[in-house]
């Protein structure tokens, strides 16, 4: 699993679309891939997590669903994660819960990921693992 991480509107999707073989990839926006699809791109995870919390799914069940989705997609998959955890403590209790759950989930995903690339206004920075381009290039063949 590869993670592309950064704040909103920083060019994360644009970056992923520019990677070799990623233009044709199956994109999952705000949802988890159900079946095994080679080269899946998962984005907008925060929207999916928010919906789960609104529906009363507890954190353990939510994490299990995420782990199932990851297990189905091995080895080549990209998760685009949006950083929403560096702002002021929200007044809305659900938003506070979302930040907490998402922060813990991101920590777990970072731990599992083969590589983590942070995008800052289009500029990639490798936080973990080998060069993302290289891996994708090799795996894409």
């Amino acid at each position: 699993m590869h993670i592309v991480f950064g704040g909103a509107f920083n060019g994360k999707r644009q970056f992923v679309r520019g990677l070799p073989g990623c233009r044709e990839a199956a994109w999952f926006e705000g949802e988890l891939p159900r079946d095994s699809i080679p080269g899946a791109v998962v984005a907008g995870l925060e929207l999916w997590v928010k919906r789960q919390l609104e529906n009363g799914t507890d954190e353990r069940e939510l994490n299990r669903l995420v782990q199932d989705a990851i297990a189905h997609q091995r080895p080549r998959q990209i998760w685009i994660l949006t950083d929403i955890n560096r702002g002021i403590v929200p007044a809305d209790p659900l938003e506070r819960e979302l930040r907490d759950v998402l922060g813990r989930l991101y920590q777990q995903l970072f731990l599992q990921a083969a590589s983590v690339t942070r995008i800052w206004y289009g500029i990639p920075e490798t936080l973990k693992g080998a060069d993302l381009h290289e891996n994708l290039h090799k795996n894409g063949r």
């Binding site: 509107f9 560096r86 702002g87």
Partner: peptide, 13 residues
């Protein structure tokens, strides 16, 4: 840096 938070003002951000 105002992008690492919830989207409070989408057009602006």
């Amino acid at each position: 840096e105002v992008m690492d938070d919830f989207i409070r003002d989408e057009p602006y951000q």
